[in-house]
């Protein structure tokens, strides 16, 4: 099953994986991902980060594997959108530190790809 990366991070290097570029905000990426998952595919990475400050990031990348409809992925993506909205109710996106957020986003996708590479033969 080949992989896809949904992202709005222009600087992202997909490390050979096909990238679906989403024009717009972090939340737009979450919405586009949900629309896609509605018709099939499985989340490989959790859509949200592990610390609250990174929710303020202008950019976010999500790793998906093509395939049949996966209920838990749809459920998880809907909860991730709700989780994002909760944190960001009155918060502004932190555009001041865009360069560092782009770098952090790349690091987390690399971390995921490295994890997957270690486990999957393909």
């Amino acid at each position: 099953m080949n992989k896809l990366i949904f992202t709005n991070n222009e600087k992202l290097d997909g490390r050979g994986i096909s990238v679906i570029f989403v024009k717009g905000s972090y939340r737009r990426v979450l919405e586009e991902c949900l629309r896609y998952l509605h018709r099939g595919g499985r989340l490989l990475t959790h859509p949200n980060p592990a610390s609250i400050k990174l929710f303020h990031s202008p950019v976010r990348s999500i790793l998906i594997e093509e395939g049949s409809v996966d209920e838990s992925s749809i459920l998880l993506m809907e909860r991730a959108i709700h989780q994002y909205d909760q944190i960001m109710t009155l918060h502004e996106v932190d555009n001041r530190n865009l360069v560092h957020y782009e770098m952090m986003d790349q690091a987390h996708i690399d971390s995921a790809l490295e994890e997957l590479a270690r486990w999957q033969s393909s």
């Binding site: 509605h38 409809v69 209920e71 838990s72 749809i74 459920l75």
Partner: peptide, 8 residues
């Protein structure tokens, strides 16, 4: 009839 059966 639902896609997300856990919610049902």
């Amino acid at each position: 009839m639902a896609t997300i059966t856990t919610i049902s």
